[in-house]
Design a protein around this nucleic acid. Sequence first.
DNA 1: CCGTTAATTAACATATCAGCTAAGTAATAA
DNA 2: TTATTACTTAGCTGATATGTTAATTAACGG
Lengths: 114, 114
Amino acid sequence: MTDPLSRTLSALADPTRRAILARLVTGEATVNELAEPFDISLPAISRHLKVLETAGLISRGRKAQWRPCRLEPGQLKAVDGWLERYRRFWEDSFDRMDLYLASLQKGSIDGEPN
Amino acid sequence: MTDPLSRTLSALADPTRRAILARLVTGEATVNELAEPFDISLPAISRHLKVLETAGLISRGRKAQWRPCRLEPGQLKAVDGWLERYRRFWEDSFDRMDLYLASLQKGSIDGEPN
DNA sequence: CCGTTAATTAACATATCAGCTAAGTAATAA
DNA sequence: TTATTACTTAGCTGATATGTTAATTAACGG
């Protein structure tokens, strides 16, 4: 599993790690802050953070004895890019865009099915 | 790992399984057809298909002795939906926190859609 | 220097995963 | 009925993942 996309998806497959990412959306956090909501040990959290960092989903700084973690969106963007080729399977993108543009020209978008 | 999103992301973390999905974009295929490009045994492919089916990423029919597989986009859409809350982090590098806070009014705190 | 706080590393148990070969099942064809 | 084709299941192996507790490193503060 050497490729970055596999590593990223594997990292995202764990609900604890996804919850950590969700927390980091609100801004930087230290390891103890990130561990607080969970019932697992601090070393376990530390390992989860290592997985996220190796996957490129977070980066870590150093402030005194704290190691603030921050979200790195690059790999999430890569997942989005991978999804792109499948998007047409759940979106009728062309038809919907045609309808959207047509409705724009008529000056109303109220009737969009959505 | 009982939740559907974790199961889906775990299934997608394997490059062989992603390659199988990519093949299915071109239409239905039998197990032997799907196995053909790979150097691994047919039972290994069969297990990969089982993982994809359990994750809801494919479905399988029955035509005589063949088991045609087809892509099921629902779980890919779920991944796209999960990504949605992070999209602003790479689409909008300015004021991303403001945008997050604006969207927070309607979302859950731990970020898991279900 | 010593103690406290923050976090990581070490050592270990257990579970799941991905691969194999061999055997089994299901439907078709002779 | 028997053979063939298509695929799955069983049983095994080695690698990897997740968790634990105990020990260790790093920085700060008296």
